[in-house]
Design a protein around this nucleic acid. Sequence first.
DNA 1: CGCCGGATTTAA
DNA 2: TAAATCCGGCGA
Length: 192
Amino acid sequence: MHLNASVDAAARSLLGCLLVRDGVVLRITEAEAYGGPEDSASHARHGRTARNAVMWGPAGRAYLYFCYGVHWMLNVATGPEDTPAAVLIRGAEVVAGLETVLARRNTPKPSAALCAGPGKVAQALGLDRSFNGHDLTAEGGLALRPGPPPGRIVAGPRLGIAFASPEDQARPWRFADGDSRAVAQRKALAPL
DNA sequence: CGCCGGATTTAA
DNA sequence: TAAATCCGGCGA
C-alpha cells in the first residue's frame, strides 16, 4: 500500500488490500485513479469544494460521495495534504461476512458480480455519508489493511467519464486484478 | 434560485 | 435501453 506515491501507483498498490467493517472483509479487485485540478475527469477539476474537501486532506481518509441520486462511492484519498487525489474502489471479492453482504446487497446467492461495481462495494460495506472523512488507517468503523497482492495487473481507461478531455479519457488509470472474476467489463482491460 | 447532468445499477 | 432519484456546481 503506497498511498503517498503518485495516484496511479497508489491505485495499483490498493489491489489486493482488504476493507474491513463489522465482520465483513472485502478484497479489492479493481480501482481507478483520480488526480487534482489538472485531471478533467476528477471531482477536483473545479477546485476545492465542500464535497471534495477530503481529497485535499491526508492520505488514507475515506472520500464518500453520492452519485446518480442512487449510489454511494468509496474512494481512498492519496498523496500529501493539499495535493488532491483519490482512488475509487470499483470492485471487490468477499473474504468474510458473506451472509451480511448478501443481506445488504439484497441478493439471494453469491456470484462473481456480487461486489463488482463501485456502488456495490459501498453497499456491501453498508457505507454512506457518515463515513466521509473517516481515517481508514485507524482501527474500528471501517479499516483498510494490507492483503494478498494480485499475481498480475491489467489496466485500461477509466469508466463513465465521457465529459472529460480526450487525453484524460485515454489515460489508463483503471486497474484490476487480472486473475479475479470480480471485475466489471474486463474486456476493456489489458496487461500492463 | 433553478437547471443540468453525473466516477451507476438493475430490470425489461 | 431506460428509469430510478438527488445533489453539487454553475450560470442567472
